[in-house]
Design a protein around this nucleic acid. Structure first.
Lengths: 230, 230
DNA sequence: TCCTAATCCATACGTTGTACGATTATGTAC
DNA sequence: GTACATAATCGTACAACGTATGGATTAGGA
């Protein structure tokens, strides 16, 4: 077919409209703005003003696009190391907070990031350095450092998953939980009923931030106990 | 069109080929055997020897099928309560182990289960009873019980997510991690390099079971510290 | 007996990922 | 310069997907 208006074929040098980076950046924009389901190859091509098939010269398929996005999120992580002037447990918490915050930047991608093992790259590995440094200062043995780091990261992943699955700042599940528990037959879960029921509405002013901090405190306390026991 | 051979129309009572349960059971089979991507409405209908559209009389759409599957997994959870004869921390660990094991029964569904908040039902709530009971025995205040339970469950979720993302029993990422860390420029992550490099091949004989136990110990130690401090 | 509603089926539509081939420019070898 | 392999883009096309619509059949309640 004859080429009318639009240019076709290979573009002149420096006029390439596409690149892996440009594609991934556009994809990230779409996902952040409209959710993961809005990301289709056609939609992506449209925002880049390009034919859908052109994308496949830079990325083999859609899975590669998603993996690339996960990689982008990790690359965007910045774990500021407060250095050895603060106690090790504060250093550890600071790294954990930064890691969580990085994951929160793109909530629509959380599921993808946390489950795509193919996104494990050098970036991810380097991300763990601050955790190891803090745990080393705590006086743990190498094996213990390895395990403690894994435990802490698993907690952050689980927490972030929950956080990403719920939309608002405050814990929507809590009121829901409260109502549900109160509706239960009393003998089905007596302790749960007593504890949660006794919390009251005010006690459930639970937000993600304080929940995360609580988890961090429990974990660092447990790690400190390990260090003491060595 | 004339009805040849096959029965059509409303079946006699008790002869229905379909039901919500039958559909979900078949769907679970497919997902367990061939993965979540193999589950399509057409495929599901085929295994039930039924027209695809018939499914929609029992479930409104595919999302409902997936949510139903998540529900099934939770319903299959059995958290045996060892009772108050064992120490509270062992009771807590036992509940956690059972919860993890339940999630492991259907690894292909892990992502769905852990991210589908709509699957939160009475079953899930009741599941938490053993956790609350153990934490209550530890002597925590209601609010502390609530937070400790959330932390523990977040850890299990994060752990299970990692476990489900990797296929084998042993931690495939570990050798991979080792190789990656060793290939790093020494100054990029000095502590990580020293610790992980110093672990050696034998030190990385890390399997999921011991990783999980290590996390449980750290968490119960941290919770015990909280209990002591109240 | 008639009516209603339940169950199932056939057809069809819009959307998706992407295979295939054509078109045009670039960079290299002669 | 000229020929040629390679790279980037576009146009067309296809199979598979979820599901909307509507009709056929028949059990069960009035």
């Amino acid at each position: 077919m004859v080429n009318v208006g639009k240019r076709s074929g290979r573009p002149r040098a420096g006029e390439e409209r596409l690149s892996r980076e440009a594609i991934l950046t556009a994809a990230l924009q779409i996902v952040d703005d409209e959710g993961i389901d809005a990301l289709t190859m056609r939609r992506l091509a449209a925002t880049l003003k390009v034919n859908p098939m052109s994308l496949y010269h830079h990325l083999p398929n859609k899975a590669a696009v998603l993996a690339g996005l996960a990689e982008l999120v990790f690359a965007g992580l910045e774990l500021p190391d407060p250095g050895d002037t603060v106690p090790w447990d504060e250093q550890l918490k600071e790294a954990a907070r930064a890691y969580r915050n990085g994951l929160r930047q793109h909530p629509n991608l959380a599921l993808q990031v946390l489950s795509d093992t193919s996104a494990v790259s050098d970036v991810v590995v380097v991300t763990m350095e601050p955790f190891y440094r803090a745990l080393d200062r705590a006086g743990l043995k190498p094996r213990q450092i390895f395990e403690a780091a894994n435990t802490l990261i698993d907690f952050i992943h689980g927490f972030s998953l929950g956080e990403a699955s719920v939309r608002s700042e405050t814990f929507e599940l809590a009121p829901d939980l409260l109502a549900r528990v109160r509706a239960l037959p009393a003998d089905k879960a007596p302790t749960l009923t007593r504890i949660v029921g006794g919390l009251g509405a005010e006690g459930l002013a639970y937000d993600f931030d304080s929940g995360f901090e609580s988890g961090l405190s429990t974990l660092t306390a447990g790690i400190a106990a390990t260090a003491r026991r060595r």
